[in-house]
């Protein structure tokens, strides 16, 4: 293992460890038992087949949201709009799932593709504005999140239901749910989406690392002027990067719409998955494989946290604090890097 890779692997690991340690200090200060708290967390995430199923289910949209953020990152863009792209993807998937009745091998892929297209379209707008008018994508994507949320709510109320708060359930032929997966995990909400998420991770890796287009996209991310000088079309690459990123986010929404919920209901606020995706990507080092691992961690934290109040009396909010601490330590990786070099020097 080269030392650079090792450091890249060590930093997130240390960040998680530090987050857990500082989290337990917070627990001790607030008068809770950190060992009981973390053991409840672990039990709630991996304690038996049911909890493992729930953890994998929660991990699925995290992988895709993480990939969406990471893809944009790698091409020099900051896509904060994953949340909104996820919501429109969810809507599109459910819409296709409700509106048509087709054989499963057409219906399911169609619903997922619709979600990807919706997410891509939603990301196309900020991408285009960035490429054509140099409008900063962070601002546009944040605003697009709100448009997505409220437009989706309006469509659910007026089109997908009769002034209700949720759509009908999708047809069986568009569903990702599986009785087999539910039976081996004691009726958890686990669905086949995880396969799609893992597949998406492979696609992202292949696209970025193994294709000419991927090389171009990364090059534009590194240095626009140099890429331009080398004869690449910078504008096109920016738009393309946003569109692919948005497609990943849209598929994340399809996971919720076709798997976990099988419908879409009016949302009072954001799902949070898209924003957590930023943290997932950051912790995973914007690397497809790293994202799978960090999505697993975030899924386990979120699902396991639900066990903490009932068996250890620790409020679930503490897990949010631990997550925040981990993100903090990842973000301050510079500190950890400094620490590591210090250790290295002393070792000499």
């Amino acid at each position: 293992m080269s030392s650079g890779r090792l450091t890249n692997f060590l930093i997130p690991l240390l960040a998680v460890l530090l987050g857990v340690i500082v989290g337990s200090i917070v627990m001790v200060i607030s008068g809770y038992d950190p060992i009981a708290g973390y053991s409840a967390l672990l039990y709630g995430a991996f304690g038996d087949s049911y909890y493992i199923g729930e953890t994998i289910r929660q991990m699925t949209p995290y992988i895709l949201a993480g990939l969406a953020v990471a893809f944009a990152f790698r091409t020099g863009l900051f896509n904060i709009g994953v949340e909104g792209q996820l919501i429109v993807g969810w809507l599109a998937a459910v819409w296709v799932g409700v509106a048509f009745e087709l054989p499963k091998f057409i219906h399911l892929p169609l619903a997922i593709l619709a979600a990807a297209a919706a997410g891509a379209l939603w990301a196309l707008i900020p991408g285009f504005l960035k490429a054509r008018f140099k409008v900063h994508e962070v601002i546009v994507t944040i605003m697009m999140n709100y448009i997505a949320l409220h437009a989706t709510n309006a469509i659910i109320r007026s089109v997908l239901s009769d002034k209700g708060y949720k759509s009908e359930e999708i047809h069986e032929s568009a569903s990702l749910r599986s009785e087999f997966l539910q039976s081996i995990t004691d009726y958890s909400t686990l669905h086949y989406g995880i396969i799609i998420a893992l597949l998406a991770a492979v696609i992202m890796w292949f696209l970025l690392e193994k294709t000419t287009k991927g090389y171009e996209l990364r090059a534009v991310g590194f240095n626009q002027h140099a890429s331009h000088y080398a004869g690449m079309n910078v504008s096109n690459n920016i738009v393309l990067a946003m569109v692919i990123s948005g497609a990943f986010a849209g598929v994340a929404g399809a996971m919720e719409g076709l798997g976990t919920f099988a419908n879409i209901s009016v949302k009072a606020g954001f799902t949070g998955v898209g924003f957590d995706g930023i943290a997932v990507a950051l912790l995973g080092g914007n690397n497809a494989f790293g994202i799978i691992l960090s999505a697993l961690l975030f899924g386990a934290l979120k699902v396991g946290a639900l066990e903490m109040p009932s068996s250890a009396g620790v409020p679930t909010e503490l897990v949010d604090i631990v997550i925040a601490l981990i993100i903090f330590f990842v973000a301050s990786s510079y500190l950890i890097r400094l620490l590591l070099t210090r250790v290295k020097k002393e070792g000499k």
């Binding site: 090792l6 460890l17 973390y38 409840a40 070792g347």
Partner: peptide, 24 residues
Amino acid sequence: KRFGVALSLMLAAGALLGGCGQKD
């Protein structure tokens, strides 16, 4: 040496996590 540090950290984490998860 650095690998040793990493390894011991991993082990420590493993011990920490392994120590939990029993009393439920």
